[in-house]
Design a binder for these strands. Structure first.
Lengths: 66, 66
DNA sequence: TCACAATGTCAAGTTGATTTTACATATATT
DNA sequence: AATATATGTAAAATCAACTTGACATTGTGA
């Protein structure tokens, strides 16, 4: 699964730590999701979508390997 | 988190087992997600959205408790 | 009534998401 | 040079997702 978190974060001028605070997880979790080490839960995906004002599908996209 | 899987499944006339096959998980997993015992991964949410031709946000919705 | 499909749920086990703590590095600011 | 901010990553622990297998219930058709 790909994601556009880094770009969305840049658009909103948020650090990984800022974003982590906003969605109630650790900074490392945000970093791990962003670098695609972890697949987040749907609750986290929805919270991220809420923060960025974009639908989940515009933040996370399936790949062939999924 | 709430979900509209049961309705979407009815609209597409799919059993829980059918749906499970389509997204590559066990029948019990579909049942557990539908009855909100488990929060699915974002990959599963995207696959469900794909099967039903609806965005993730129309299948899963945050609640105050999330 | 007898099968059968669909659903709900439980228990035990494995894997993976998330946390905390910690360290390293790069960049910018003073 | 020193301090601070942002990022990347690693190890160990915890908890939740997901699996398999199994059993019970409900509704439906033969």
């Amino acid at each position: 699964m790909k994601n556009r978190l880094k770009v969305a974060r840049a658009e909103h001028n948020l650090s990984q730590a800022d974003l982590a605070d906003r969605i109630g997880v650790s900074r490392q979790t945000v970093n791990s999701i962003e670098t695609a080490r972890y697949v987040p839960s749907t609750v986290l995906a929805l919270k991220l979508a809420q923060v960025f004002g974009k639908p989940v599908d515009q933040l996370f996209m399936l790949e062939e390997t999924d």
